[in-house]
Design a protein around this nucleic acid. Structure first.
Lengths: 142, 142
DNA sequence: CGGGATCCATGTGGATACTG
DNA sequence: CAGTATCCACATGGATCCCG
């Protein structure tokens, strides 16, 4: 029994982490944002999201449905028609996700620059004492 | 060359998606939030985030450093001491991530309820005509 | 059209051991 | 302490075939 950390926890059993895990699904985020525009059919989503296989789309939609983020409505037409749409809960999540996309668009250049600089540093390895920023600070207590 | 979609794209080569992919790393999110509190040492992070192995932590920190979100500072003490901290860019991302955690905490109950309902529906399969919400709508054009 | 089932390649992540 | 390297098990995801 450690000093329990009540607020927001980083323990594996923390429910918040479960949600984060779901959000941490790159496909789920894209799907939610597409459905935020308008309800879509299975193959419509598949066609729009490049690199997403039918199997994974199917799986992802199922978990999104289970979590209460999307609804699945099947129309008994000749070739069956299925439409996926956001629930209010899903719409709420999608809205929360929007700033993230905005951030990504706004800062992609910074990230790419950082990557280039990092990779360059590694490529230019061979100098005498490559102490980039290794400060001579006071030793941290153990 | 298809009809290119300039605004926010769902193409695999879209840079925004690359960022989302990084964010879509459950460990990265947790690490960023912990570092937002204060700079931390390797094993401090490892100890706090339950279920995170040293290998994955190492990998994740490296990509976070490469993307310009965290800095790695090594102090040449006897047992080497390394401190990880957020860059301004990383801090900016962390702030953007905060509403997400808030949302997760606020809606975890809804999600759990949705899951329970969904699972119950599947377990209660056996009725005559289980057409829950299959509307008799007009057939969608092909 | 919208998937489920199957088979298989690969990536991801854990455990362990060893180094600076 | 802070990793890197290796080996290995399992989960993930693609490709394919088929059914309603």
């Amino acid at each position: 029994m450690q000093t329990d950390l009540p607020p927001n926890t980083y323990a594996a059993d923390c429910p918040t982490r479960q949600i984060l895990d779901r959000i941490a699904d790159k496909w789920a985020v894209l799907i939610l944002q597409l459905l935020a525009d308008e309800p879509q059919r299975f193959n419509a989503l598949r066609r729009k999201i490049q690199g997403l296989s039918q199997k994974v789309l199917s799986q992802t939609l199922k978990t999104l449905e289970r979590d209460g983020f999307v609804t699945r409505t099947a129309f008994p037409t000749v070739p069956v028609t299925v439409e996926y749409a956001l629930t209010p809960l899903g719409a709420s999540l999608a809205e929360t996700l929007t700033p993230l996309s905005r951030w990504a668009e706004a800062h992609i250049k910074d990230v790419e620059a950082a990557r280039a600089a990092f990779d360059h540093r590694r490529a230019t390895s061979g100098e005498g004492v490559p102490q980039g920023q290794t400060e001579s600070h006071a030793p941290v207590a153990l």
